[in-house]
Write a protein that binds this DNA or RNA. Structure first.
Lengths: 106, 106
DNA sequence: TTCGTTGGTTTGTATTGCAAACCTGTTTGT
DNA sequence: ACAAACAGGTTTGCAATACAAACCAACGAA
């Protein structure tokens, strides 16, 4: 019965952090984004975005490519296959948690 | 557009922690529960349950009543109105985030 | 040259989530 | 009666976090 509820404790903590949830959700939709675009869309400071991206990269969820657009640096980010799967899985877990909670109160 | 996605950053951090999400979800369903029942159902250690309950109490989300069943202590927990509302709100936010993410990829 | 800007990274700090140790009382064994 | 074990929790210690602020390096303009 509350096994379903308890399942929420198994969510991917990396993705369960709102800032990172946003980052990954954006990348999930756009396939590829540069640092500043991501910063604006996610509404994060550079410092935080940088730190979160590093964690996501370390986990193998995003691939970060530092290139140059002319002479100015350009950091491109995209979700890896693992990252996509992890996000889909995370979404499913949230979904099923919500459903469980909703039906349980009737 | 990604205002919807960004909205996930406004979730109630207190409830967004899986252990506490579980505690509150259980209390939401049962109206009242004693410490040990909650511990079993939530699958937490006593220490963690105690700490999380304290936070929820401090936030005014749960009411904790320490009584006795005969001679042994009995701690009863129940959700306050604020707690109920907060949890409903939290659920809604998750729901709308999921919907946003899902429709955004079509 | 100096100043401001772009595109980030590193550092500092206060807050956490968790486990393990602890505490207070009660029951059990002998 | 008295130690040992147990029930029901709380406090402590610590490693990991999230965030902001400070920093850095390269470029463009004045």
């Amino acid at each position: 019965m509350s096994d379903d509820i308890r399942s929420i404790s198994n969510v991917d903590r990396l993705l369960h952090e709102p800032s990172r949830t946003i980052i990954v959700a954006i990348l999930y939709a756009v396939e590829s984004a540069d640092f500043l675009y991501l910063q604006r869309e996610a509404g994060l400071t550079k410092g935080n975005l940088s730190a979160h991206l590093s964690k996501l990269e370390a986990a193998g969820y995003v691939k970060i490519e530092k290139t140059y657009k002319g002479k100015i640096p350009l950091t491109l980010c995209e979700l890896t296959d693992d990252g996509r799967k992890a996000f889909e899985e995370y979404r499913k877990q949230l979904q099923s948690f919500i459903e469980t909670v909703q039906t349980e109160q009737e």
